[in-house]
Design a binder for these strands. Structure first.
Lengths: 342, 342
DNA sequence: TGTTAGCACTCGACCTTGTAGAGTGCTAAC
DNA sequence: GTTAGCACTCTACAAGGTCGAGTGCTAACA
């Protein structure tokens, strides 16, 4: 364990480096932070800290910058958990009030808020439909050969698709099939709608087994669409303001990675514990972001975890601020979503 | 009018500059293009071309680069209209076949194809709903206080929204109102649904004028959502490969502009003639893209123009290729959309 | 009269060199 | 254990020099 002075010095280095993006020297620390010791002493301590792996040097005679281990210690032991100020909270709540009318807009604006406040890239993973319940499906008329299949969930998500009416089925047949399916499935969560239940339905409707199969196929297809998690991204341009992305090649490879949406969704750790998680530098499993850190948090509706929000940026990020914002989202995004009738 | 040799030289300059992004000198032209004259002669001609405003010099003793006027002349008079090769066309058609299942995916993939082929940013403006016809609206049950309003167009676009049931209206009232509205509006294009018609409907339904007003309000609100043009963007990262965007500040301001979607939609000229249009440099009305060129083309369904595709990039773009691709989209995107049941 | 070779000139790109400044480690004194 | 002093290291930056590509002009040539 580090003694008090070493901790103060490490804290000073991380704090300063986060705000200036410049390596920090002993004299700078002595000047800015009143530790009551001379630069020479600080130099000795810094040599120790470097030996212990908390800070590193780009070359002889440059100041020190925090290592991944240093950031980890900072986040775990030096950062006093802060909450957002009342004023900030009021601002955010007001933002939601003004800018959101659809559910989708809540996600969109959440991404915007996060990236704006933290000056980093934000990710919002929307609820997996599997976690909400099937309410009903309905076929709406379109023309002789096509119909509109509408699937409604208990949370008010509506998905629709224009589909061909399977040959041999009349529109009335479809209505009948829909009614039956609804009677059996209504209220079940999408997770619980398994092939076995679908088989049962098929068995119950002895007539037209083939036709039902087609209809069930359509439902399944709709489910696939539903299940597809959606990801909202915010603040990709903020990236360009960060000094670590001066190098245009770096920006390019990073943006290319961001375009691989499924990859990003995968990067978000399936977190077990319910709260804010910080992943620093090479703790990330994808090499593309190993000089980045990610802070993520779940959000819940009625106590159930339904999605994840995250902030992604260079390891040199303002962990305190980012964590407090995500803490807020963790606690309040569910409320907001509920208010806006998800 | 330029004589034949000047035209050859201008063409050589534009061609070379497009492919190398370096100013072109007289010696380079003499070497690469067999014009049968010496560099000195070419120099004299270039001096003339500069005087006429077709090319310009960044400083004494640099080669020449085309001016906006030069590009304009190139596009109008030097570029022989080319078509895409059969092989390329087959590739594109195959791409659509493999990657598109929803209508939205067609737009998404069109943007991707355009940016991939042209190495520039692509814009796909999707059909304005105003240009297709209202088919019907329907209220679907949700819960005691809310209903799902579904609006269907003749092209198969379906938009839905969960709305509060206005106090005083029963679900049956809504059904009745929907029926009446459908009877009056079905088949009308959204453009033709004007306030006057809505007033008429209001007058016809003498009972419950207040309630109808509310319902019409909801429809109008849905229309607003509908009318909102959607814009698909592709290849923003391609930008970073272009040497004119080495400067990170430039990239940033450009990307910021791209985020203003409505602005972009506005930049696309409301074109009257039906074909491929090229806008070069300061011909663009927005100052943010005055060192860029834009090539745009309409696409049609059943002979009716429904949307626009465009490619945006530095003035130094491969106009021949870009124009041929957009010519292709102009002629075939409608077909693709039709096949995928728009 | 149009074309060409030759020449002096210009300017950016690139390299070298020198200097200032920030920072370090070590040592000796407090 | 702490500190002042000192020699040392390394980067950033500016100044100066050279190279090469390109130009315009002039005089000679077909």
């Amino acid at each position: 364990m580090l003694d008090k002075r070493k901790r103060s010095i490490l804290q000073a280095i991380v704090d300063d480096y986060i705000s200036t993006a410049e390596p920090i020297g002993s004299r700078t620390i002595a000047r800015k932070h009143d530790l009551g010791v001379s630069p020479a002493t600080i130099r000795n301590e810094m040599a120790d800290l470097e030996l212990l792996g908390y800070i590193e040097q780009l070359h002889t005679s440059s100041g020190r910058i925090p290592s991944a281990k240093g950031y980890r210690f900072y986040v775990d032991s030096l950062l006093s958990p802060t909450r957002m100020s009342e004023r900030e909270i009021a601002l955010i709540k007001n933002w939601y009030q003004e800018k959101t009318r659809h559910v989708e807009e809540v996600f969109q604006e959440t991404a915007k808020i996060l990236s704006k406040i933290t000056s980093n890239i934000s990710l919002v993973l929307v609820p997996q439909v599997t976690q909400c319940a099937f309410k009903y499906l309905k076929f709406l008329p379109f023309d002789d050969s096509r119909t509109i299949l509408v699937v409604v969930t208990d949370t008010g998500f509506v998905e629709n698709k224009v589909i061909d009416i399977p040959t041999g089925l009349s529109f009335n047949d479809l209505q009948r099939i829909a009614e039956h399916i609804n009677r059996r499935l209504s209220g079940l969560s999408f997770e619980n709608i398994e092939l076995s239940i679908l088989r049962e339905i098929q068995n119950e409707m002895l007539i037209d087994v083939d036709l039902l199969e087609t209809a069930l196929g359509i439902l399944k297809q709709a489910l696939v669409v539903e299940k597809n998690e959606r990801l909202y991204l915010g603040g990709t341009t903020q990236l360009l303001s960060q000094p670590e992305f001066k190098n245009i090649e770096k920006v390019k490879s990073f943006l290319d990675m961001l375009e691989e949406e499924h990859l990003l969704a995968d990067i978000l750790q399936k977190q077990k514990n319910d709260g804010v998680i910080v992943t620093i530098g090479d703790e990330n499993k994808y090499s593309g972001i190993q000089d980045c850190s990610m802070v993520q948090a779940t959000y819940r509706i009625d106590g159930q975890v339904v999605g994840t929000v995250a902030v992604l940026g260079p390891t040199r990020m303002d962990y305190g601020k980012v964590m407090s914002v995500l803490e807020f989202m963790h606690n309040h995004l569910g409320e907001v979503l509920k208010k806006y009738k998800i």
